[in-house]
């Protein structure tokens, strides 16, 4: 087994200010005694103002990479720094804290709590940060206003359209002020017009200084990013800087 390097952010690869640094990261699942490699050695750096699209067929390892970048999972080997912290050295509780402070997730299926209003859904990450109820509601309302849903504060997910639900999810991802927004097929469940507006929203957030990492198999969506990373069989096969 390859032991993760006991290194500080300073001697780690990449610039000190990088949001996420992955070096030669692998992820191998053990299924019924059979080793299934999902990632076979991936290196990637996400800088603070990045707009990266990760594309690839299903089974290419892009979702696994996404989970690792978001601190939901740990690499089997290699070094992974999120917000300058080596995830190999963190307890599950510390990982949760790191996700809360550094990462915002946007999922294809929105993952909103069904019986909960838009405002309380958005406020959820603040619950785990120990923010008081009143301040939570204020910050959640402000964030919903920012994504254009000021009129939907007390609506439940089933009272909103898909696009609106995804905006709620984006507001939830942003409410803690993360440095990276990880979006897994954010337009996958939306029609093209709604998808466009969600992408526009993500891009305006990126312009304000939030790194955006997008996982998609839609070439058009990927083409709007500043960088495009193509994955196949658990490896990065190409990384292209696109014209801004």
């Amino acid at each position: 087994m390859k032991f993760p390097e006991m290194s500080d952010a300073a001697d780690a690869p990449g610039a000190p200010g990088d949001a996420i640094v992955a070096v030669d990261v692998t992820r191998i699942y053990e299924l019924d005694g059979v080793s299934v490699p999902a990632l076979r050695g991936v290196s990637l750096t996400v800088s603070p103002d990045d707009y990266v699209a990760i594309v690839g067929q299903s089974g290419s390892g892009k979702s696994t990479l996404m989970h690792l970048l978001g601190g939901l999972d740990r690499p089997t080997s290699g070094t992974l720094l999120i917000g300058g912290r080596d995830v190999a050295k963190l307890t599950p509780g510390e990982m949760a804290r790191l996700r809360n402070e550094t990462i915002g997730f946007v999922f294809q299926s929105f993952h909103l709590l069904p019986r909960t209003t838009a405002r309380d859904n958005v406020a959820l990450p603040l619950v785990y940060r120990g923010v008081g109820r009143r301040e939570r509601r204020e910050r959640a309302s402000a964030m919903l206003e920012r994504v254009g849903l000021a009129h939907r504060l007390d609506h439940r997910p089933n009272q909103m359209s898909g696009g609106e639900q995804q905006r709620v999810a984006i507001a939830r991802a942003l409410v803690t002020g993360p440095s990276v927004l990880l979006a897994d097929e954010p337009t996958g469940n939306l029609d093209s017009t709604t998808g466009q507006s969600v992408l526009t929203l993500l891009e305006s957030l990126n312009a304000e200084g939030v790194a955006v990492v997008l996982v998609t198999h839609d070439r058009d969506v990927a083409g709007r990013a500043h960088r495009q990373i193509v994955m196949r069989d658990g490896l990065i096969v190409s990384a292209t800087d696109l014209v801004r």
Binding site: L72, A96, R97, R99, L113, P125, Y128
Partner: peptide, 16 residues
């Protein structure tokens, strides 16, 4: 389970 996953993703610790 999905709710638990979501809560964890947004920062709930195992203890929470």
């Amino acid at each position: 389970t999905r709710e638990i996953g979501l809560r964890k993703a947004v920062g709930a610790r195992p203890r929470d």
